[in-house]
Simulated assay, not measured.
Amino acid sequence: MKELVLKTVDDAVAAGLSHRWAAGVWQVSDDRVHRWRARRRELGTLSDLAPGGAAVHGLLGWEIEEILAVAEEWGPTDRSHRKLAHRGSYEGRVWVAPSTFRRVLAAHGLVPAQRPPVPKQPKTPWPHWLVWAPNRVWIWDVTHFGRARRCVFAIVDMVLCCV
């Protein structure tokens, strides 16, 4: 259809009619006809291109290479995609988010060595001297400063029972 519009507009212009008037007969703007003509000249076709394209915020090739280089160099030391991402930025090599760092490593089959999870410890029971009563201090702490040659009393945490 675009070829037909361009052909009739060109024929009308060759016959001495206005380009704008010929495009208006087809109810197509003059600018659009010029864009179609430029597309045919540059791409050799008038068919529409597939939507999408490359993301403007996508990673560049050198960024992926730097991520892999930082992971190879510092992976055994840092052991975390978060630390590796920060390492890459403060060394001035690559500036990406930790999640991006992790995705690139996963796409290349690399996973930083991680420490095993810490096993859960059983909760410490309340001391035997704890009395559950209104307006009683449950827990207190005394800090001794040996160099001060005296005992300094400091309440670090206080929990009151107000029942």
Rank of each mutant, 00 (worst) to 15 (best):
residue 125 P to W: 04
residue 108 H to G: 06
residue 109 G to A: 12
residue 13 V to S: 06
residue 23 A to I: 08
residue 74 W to L: 10
residue 9 V to L: 03
residue 96 V to C: 07
residue 160 L to T: 10
residue 28 V to Y: 04
residue 25 V to P: 05
residue 84 L to E: 00
residue 106 A to S: 11
residue 39 R to E: 09
residue 11 D to W: 06
residue 10 D to V: 11
residue 51 P to H: 02
residue 142 V to C: 07
residue 20 R to S: 14
residue 109 G to Y: 05
residue 146 G to I: 03
residue 37 R to F: 08
residue 143 T to P: 00
residue 2 K to I: 10
residue 38 A to C: 01
residue 22 A to M: 08
residue 44 G to T: 03
residue 25 V to Q: 15
residue 116 P to F: 01
residue 114 Q to A: 13
residue 151 C to M: 14
residue 30 D to N: 15
residue 158 M to Q: 14
residue 92 G to T: 04
residue 53 G to Q: 02
residue 26 W to R: 10
residue 156 V to G: 14
residue 74 W to T: 12
residue 158 M to E: 15
residue 26 W to A: 13
residue 63 E to H: 05
residue 85 A to N: 01
residue 78 D to R: 02
residue 154 A to D: 15
residue 46 L to P: 00
residue 131 V to L: 07
residue 101 F to I: 12
residue 150 R to Q: 10
residue 59 L to Q: 04
residue 9 V to N: 01
residue 36 W to A: 07
residue 112 P to A: 02
residue 58 G to H: 14
residue 32 R to S: 11
residue 142 V to L: 05
residue 112 P to T: 01
residue 52 G to D: 01
residue 142 V to N: 06
residue 65 E to K: 13
residue 76 P to G: 02
residue 163 V to T: 14
residue 100 T to W: 10
residue 132 W to V: 12
residue 9 V to Y: 01
residue 15 A to T: 05
residue 162 C to T: 15
residue 70 V to G: 09
residue 95 W to N: 13
residue 33 V to W: 04
residue 126 W to E: 08
residue 21 W to E: 15
residue 3 E to I: 01
residue 104 V to G: 04
residue 91 E to F: 09
residue 149 R to G: 03
residue 104 V to P: 04
residue 29 S to M: 13
residue 55 A to S: 12
residue 107 A to T: 10
residue 75 G to M: 06
residue 146 G to N: 09
residue 29 S to P: 12
residue 58 G to L: 12
residue 12 A to L: 12
residue 76 P to S: 03
residue 31 D to T: 14
residue 104 V to C: 06
residue 21 W to Q: 15
residue 45 T to C: 01
residue 110 L to E: 06
residue 83 K to H: 03
residue 109 G to W: 06
residue 102 R to G: 12
residue 85 A to P: 05
residue 55 A to W: 03
residue 8 T to W: 09
residue 59 L to G: 03
residue 20 R to M: 12
residue 131 V to A: 05
residue 150 R to E: 14
residue 51 P to R: 06
